[in-house]
């Protein structure tokens, strides 16, 4: 019995880790390519382990391309979208979960509906709207556009986090002398905080990774975020420098890596609450 079991575990380990490495291979390859000297890149046949490690591509990326500008734009864009969406969404979710008024149920259904709506349906009218408002080619236009998917998404997540705070806690605060808003600030907000943080992380990632709106709304390097910016580097270059693009890809994923390394528990929490539980 025992030896059989041990070998099954061994097999499970081997198969699982084999698949995990296979799945991660593209990402590993990205990192490997980005630190490999240009000369090694065009070797035929290519080798898996680089013979020398260099950061020349990263230096070039930061010094000779508009990458840093794109990075800053993305940072501003994702941060402002997250702040707007979290502030509005937290209040909205509290209202949807703990108050009763006519139209509340309809509104909740509408939020879920908009959460599923394809961007391409909204993008044409939104583009026309931005042109009319004179906001085309600005980061503001993107913050506005990003709320179309980020706000319903955040509301849906936050709603389920708020619903998870025991109602008795709020009742206790009310009896103890707090107003509704007082109870919200003293009790519900601290209790929902982990949920709010994970929603904020998801919103940030969503905004950080967005491509289509950025492609349509922004047409200048001044306001271009990373996604369209880096893609532009690929399209406009005469001679595609893959090491440079891989370095850009790594740099672009840094916020993600930070979140993964330090805040992973928030990530899995949000995942459970949002998508699947309904």
């Amino acid at each position: 019995m025992m030896p059989a079991r041990r070998s099954t575990t061994m097999l499970a380990n081997l198969v699982t880790w084999g698949l995990v490495l296979l799945i991660s291979f593209p990402l590993i390859w990205m990192v490997v390519t980005s630190v490999r000297p240009q000369t090694e890149l065009f070797q035929i046949p290519p080798t898996v382990i680089p013979r020398a490690i260099t950061f020349e591509h990263y230096i070039k990326l930061l010094q000779e391309t508009p990458f840093l500008r794109y990075f800053m734009n993305s940072m501003i864009l994702a941060t402002s979208t997250t702040i707007v969406v979290i502030v509005v969404g937290t209040l909205g979710a509290y209202s949807l979960v703990r108050f009763s008024y006519r139209g509340r149920e309809t509104l909740a259904a509408l939020v879920l509906f908009t959460y599923l709506l394809p961007s391409v349906v909204l993008i044409i009218p939104l583009y026309l709207m931005m042109v009319k408002l004179g906001l085309a080619n600005t980061l503001t236009s993107l913050v506005i556009a990003y709320t179309t998917f980020a706000l319903p998404y955040a509301l849906w997540l936050l709603r389920s986090f708020m619903a998870g705070v025991p109602e008795d806690l709020e009742s206790a605060a009310l009896v103890d002398g707090a107003s509704r808003i007082g109870a919200f600030i003293d009790v519900i907000l601290p209790q929902a905080l982990p949920g709010i943080i994970s929603t904020a992380l998801f919103t940030f990632i969503l905004a950080w990774n967005e491509y289509l709106y950025a492609l349509v709304m922004v047409n200048s390097d001044q306001a271009r975020p990373l996604t369209t910016g880096v893609m532009n580097m690929l399209i406009t270059s005469f001679n595609i420098e893959w090491s440079l693009l891989m370095a850009a890809s790594v740099m672009m994923s840094i916020p993600l890596i930070i979140i993964f390394a330090f805040l992973q528990s928030y990530l899995t929490r949000g995942f459970g609450a949002g998508g699947v539980k309904g």
């Binding site: 593209p26 990402l27 390859w29 990205m30 491509y211 996604t227 693009l245 994923s253 993600l256």
Partner: peptide, 30 residues
């Protein structure tokens, strides 16, 4: 299953979902 370094394995498997589509496409085109 009860495999070694399970949470690391989970993180690695999760990563493609969170990485930007732009990054995913660049890698695959390469």
């Amino acid at each position: 299953q009860n495999i070694l370094f399970r949470s690391l394995a989970r993180s690695l498997v999760l990563f493609p979902y969170f990485v930007s589509t732009v990054v995913a496409v660049l890698i695959w085109r390469w």
